[in-house]
Structure formats: structure tokens, C-alpha cells
């Protein structure tokens, strides 16, 4: 049983539904949970009373789906009245994102967990490995799957037309900080540093998060090398600079890699831990992602 009023377009601020609703002619309580693209706001109904409603926070189409809730969560509010509670998740799918357009074009099923702009926990991301150490892999987050490229502007050409071949888009020149001329920034303390154009969010894959089996025997060097494009999932927000990522799943791991530390050709996976460069037969070790989902 799912309710999906897919045609309703909402603008930010527009009320979608109250958080609780009594179904007509029955004792069933409908509970609505605010999902992505929505927010909860208190609306004054009269001078004294307010209603809690779920309002849209982005422009898009409303999807309301019933979800199964473990009974434990339901009890705490309504265990005295033995009423049946149905729970619905309210999400607003944005008007467009790279993946949405792609899925529409190819008539694929629209994925439910459309990501809005920022990598969040449990989002699947595509990262580029920038540095490896014995214990962890450093990388930058290029794209959020089912969302967009993280940066609209890749920073190409900021240091000159061809400089990106020798210098990374963000590095090289003096800081391009936009900090000094900004009018003010009431919302943050001034300790934060802004980054340069083309500088991505960063992530870390710790060696124990590389694969799910034999975690203690993982060798980072046999799993990832700088320049590899890796599909991973976000574990947590991490610290000030890095997200924490994991590739401990069959469909996570290297998706694109070049042989001989990036100077060779594109390699193809042989099995889950070997890749081959078909032009010269070099076989290198990688933790490969299963390319079939």
C-alpha cells in the first residue's frame, strides 16, 4: 500500500501534510515522517495553537510512501490507545539532477534515495584516490550517486589553460580564498577556511573498511593506488576535513584504474582482486567493484 501523489509539485515552504492525521471513517492514525527535501515547521493555526506540519524545503515533486516501522518505535507515543498506526515517509524529489535526468532518459526506475547536493551518510559516492598510507586511503569525493557531481565547476583552467595536466586544478597558485571580501559571515565562526575552486570534499577509507572479510590482512597497496576511481559508501561525516568511507561490499571498490601507476592503459577486472591491462598483459592487484548491480 503506497500512496504516491507524484504529480504534486511543491515549492519550498509549502505545507505537504500534518505530521499526524486521522484516517477518515477509521481509527487508523497516519504518521508522516519528514524525509529528504522536507522540513518540519510549526504553523500558527490561531492565536494560541500551532500545528506541526511537514513542509517542502526544495522545489520538486512529492512522494509519500508507506514504510514498515519496527513496533518498538511506535509504542513510545501511543501504547495506551490501541490504535493502528501507519507510517509514511514524505520526500520531495528535486526538479532535476544529473542522475535523475539520466534515469528518465533511459527509462530506468527512478531511485528513491535521491541525494540533494551534499554527500550524506549512506550515500554512495565516486571518489578519486589521492594518497595512500599503510593504514588508510585518502581520496576526494567527485560525485554522489543518484545526485550530481559534487562541484559544478571542476576548477579546470583556473591556473591557466593547460596547467591541470601538471598541477591539480585547485593547487599551484596562491590561495584563491573568497574570505576577505565577503561581507560578513554571521553563520560560522571565522576559524573555517574556504577552499579553492575545484577543491572537493575529502574522504578517508581506513584499511579495516576496505573489504568485509579478513579485514586485518588487508594491504592497502594491494587494494587501491593513487588515481583510481573508487565506488564507496559514506560511513560518517568524519572530522573537519575528511568523510569516512567504506568499500566493504561486493559492488564497492575500483571501477576505473590505469596500469603502471596511472601511466599505462585502462585496466579491466579479472576477478574481485585482479585487474588486467589488455594491451600489455600486466596484471595488477586491486579491490574491484562488481560492475553488475
Amino acid at each position: 500500500m503506497s500512496k504516491a501523489n507524484t504529480d504534486t509539485v511543491v515549492v519550498p515552504g509549502q505545507y505537504i501534510t500534518p505530521t499526524y492525521k486521522l484516517q477518515e471513517d477509521s481509527n487508523i492514525i497516519e504518521k508522516y515522517i519528514s524525509g529528504r527535501g522536507t522540513t518540519i515547521s510549526q504553523i500558527k493555526a490561531s492565536e494560541t495553537s500551532t500545528i506541526t506540519v511537514i513542509a517542502a524545503s526544495i522545489l520538486g515533486k512529492v512522494y509519500i510512501n508507506e514504510i514498515e516501522v519496527t513496533s518498538g518505535e511506535v509504542e513510545d507515543k501511543n501504547n495506551e490507545q490501541k490504535q493502528q498506526i501507519k507510517t509514511f515517509l514524505v520526500v520531495v524529489i528535486p526538479k532535476s539532477s544529473t542522475y535523475l535526468n539520466f534515469q528518465k532518459e533511459h527509462q530506468q526506475a527512478l531511485s528513491n534515495s535521491i541525494s540533494i547536493n551534499l554527500p550524506k551518510e549512506n550515500d554512495i559516492v565516486l571518489v578519486k584516490v589521492t594518497k595512500i598510507t599503510l593504514k588508510q586511503v585518502f581520496c576526494e569525493i567527485l560525485t554522489v550517486e543518484n545526485g550530481d557531481n559534487v562541484l559544478k565547476d571542476s576548477g579546470l583552467g583556473v591556473n591557466g589553460e593547460l596547467s591541470h595536466a601538471s598541477v591539480s586544478p585547485s593547487g599551484g597558485s596562491a590561495s584563491l580564498s573568497n574570505y576577505q571580501t565577503v561581507a560578513s559571515s554571521q553563520s560560522t565562526m571565522s576559524a573555517a577556511q574556504f577552499q579553492d575552486i575545484g577543491e572537493n570534499f575529502r574522504g578517508v577509507i581506513r584499511s579495516q573498511d576496505i573489504r568485509s572479510t579478513e579485514r586485518d590482512r588487508v594491504k592497502v597497496i594491494e587494494s587501491y593506488k593513487p588515481g583510481d576511481i573508487v565506488r564507496a559508501m559514506i560511513l560518517s561525516l568524519g572530522d573537519g576535513s575528511n568523510y569516512y568511507l567504506t568499500t566493504a561490499r561486493n559492488d564497492f571498490g575500483v571501477i576505473f584504474a590505469k596500469s603502471v601507476n596511472g601511466s599505462g592503459n585502462l585496466m579491466y577486472p579479472l576477478d574481485w582482486q585482479n585487474m588486467i591491462d589488455v594491451n600489455n598483459g600486466i596484471i595488477e592487484k586491486r579491490k574491484c567493484a562488481n560492475p553488475f548491480a
Binding site: T98, Y99, T143, I229, D251, F256, L266, P291, F292, A293
Partner: peptide, 20 residues
């Protein structure tokens, strides 16, 4: 039938421009 993981063109251009 196995569904292959696919990337929108914009994403492919960002992650592996030379392949794109």
C-alpha cells in the same frame, strides 16, 4: 539479466574524462 552499473555522461566526464 545483469544490470550493468552505468554513469550519466556528466559524471563520466568528471571521473574519467579520457574514457568519456
Amino acid at each position: 539479466e545483469l544490470k550493468q552499473v552505468s554513469f550519466p555522461p556528466e559524471v563520466l566526464a568528471r571521473i574519467v574524462p579520457e574514457v568519456s
